[in-house]
């Protein structure tokens, strides 16, 4: 695979908070780097570690999982499951030789367009600093 200077990011955004937050960033015209491809899921707790693994297998440079703030989950506790699951998955990534910084978990509420834009910008920056994947697939 060709080394791409621009990191490729897949974002799994929960429908109720983060996806709405991303929409708000759009409505408020808050620019962020165009590196992210967003996949809408009902809840951050819906995100199967398999999806993230598949992304890395496909050569994605970074995966963002975003959900409602702790305590604010539309489904009461879905984001707590996501938090536990992806903290664990980070350790697993290290084991696979993929830097765990390539997987990020963020809490973005429906009213936090700015926070979403900043999160994507920061993540893109961090991935650029990290450089391309050493074991792309």
């Amino acid at each position: 695979m060709a080394v791409d200077a621009e990191p490729r990011i897949v974002g799994f955004l929960c429908n109720w908070c983060s996806y709405a937050g991303a929409d708000l960033a759009g409505t408020s015209r808050m620019a962020y780097p165009p590196n992210i491809r967003i996949i809408r899921v009902p809840c951050s707790g819906r995100v199967d570690p398999l999806f993230v693994a598949k992304c890395f297998e496909q050569g994605v440079d970074g995966v963002l999982v975003a959900g409602c703030h702790p305590g604010d989950c539309h489904y009461v506790q879905g984001n707590y499951f996501a938090r536990r699951r992806f903290n664990l998955m980070g350790r697993f990534l290290d084991y696979l030789g993929i830097e765990k910084e390539r997987l990020r978990l963020e809490w973005v509420s429906a009213s936090e367009g700015k926070r979403f834009a900043t999160a994507v910008s920061d993540f893109t920056q961090a991935l650029k600093k990290l450089g391309p994947r050493t074991n792309p697939t």
């Binding site: 897949v10 996949i39 899921v41 009902p42 809840c43 707790g45 819906r46 995100v47 199967d48 570690p49 398999l50 999806f51 598949k54 992304c55 496909q58 539309h74 489904y75 879905g78 499951f81 699951r85």
Partner: peptide, 27 residues
Amino acid sequence: CGLCVASCRPGAINLRGFTNQQLLEEV
């Protein structure tokens, strides 16, 4: 919400409209 889907070990549960196949296909 799909919490059960993501926690189902044998992959017996699916969420209509957001199936594992659909989301993987997107990736």
